[in-house]
Amino acid sequence: MRGELLATRGRVIAIAAVLVFASVSPLFVDEFSVLVLNQCLIWGVLALSLDLMLGYTGMASLGHAAYFGTGAYATAIMSATYGASFGEAFLVALIAAAVVTAICALVALRASDVYFLMITFALAMLIWGLAYRWDSMTGGENGIAGIDRPLIMEDTITYYYFTLVVAAGVFLFFSVLVHSCFGKTMVGIRESESRMRALGYNVWLHKFIIYMISGIFSGLAGFLWVYYNSYVAPTDVELVTSFNALLMVSLGGPGTLAGPLLGSTIFVILDNSVNMFTERSLTVVGCIYIVVVLFAPEGIMGFIKQLRTKVGETDNG
């Protein structure tokens, strides 16, 4: 009991430390560092959303780029083509992400396990196909350029703080969610669907709701990304994006909230720095995939947990 309390206190301290760091550090580093930190946050939101499905509920989606991309394209189209405001684009992005997620979820939830992977993968391919070829709407190969942020968020630092607030909100919402009854049900579904069903839970509905939340927040990440990069192209929606999101979650630790953030941070920093040291960045990233899968299936957080258990054991002994 006391241990749990302390652990909670530790958690609060850690979160506070990250928050303080994240809000103060931009004032002391150069603009590029702020940009990189901003990327960490945006991909962090995507990874968190994916983790809700993958880590907490045990639904591995191989196509989260689709929902991210829907949010991104909806934002870009609203902003660049229709001249919509930031708020309007935000609304439309979330609605678009919700609609696309709902349709995909209806199809994908008919399958489970590896077939679920396959179907989410196929659906993401379809969305990519639309982004790539629905020229009049998406600009096709050209993508959509010239998406400007509203004046008050024009400079890098302000937008960073905006993203930080959003990301913190998402984190807060998710931590309330996973610690609620609903969250316990999620874990229950992960552990044994049939048992949950026997206990009278509507497993399908739970899964659908989780899928929806995950998709909508991925769309939110897409929205943030477009205003960050002021450009969107089919490569944002491609397979590799889905895989990278999965890697971030796996690297950090699925089934935890700190894990995805940690994973996305490491990934983004590597992505922005590895080619400064070597021409062979493809091999480096490829090896990270292989090593994470083989040696750190529970990610860094899992590794830490293991370490902690060991330390605890020696303490007791």
Binding site: G10, A14, S25, V36, L262, T265, I266, I269, D315
Partner: peptide, 22 residues
């Protein structure tokens, strides 16, 4: 030690900033 463990996350962020700081 548990608390130390939780400090890993902020530490990683710090490292990130150090790496990124030019």
């Amino acid at each position: 030690r548990k608390r130390i463990v939780f400090l890993v996350v902020p530490l990683a962020f710090t490292l990130a900033a150090l790496l990124a700081a030019g």
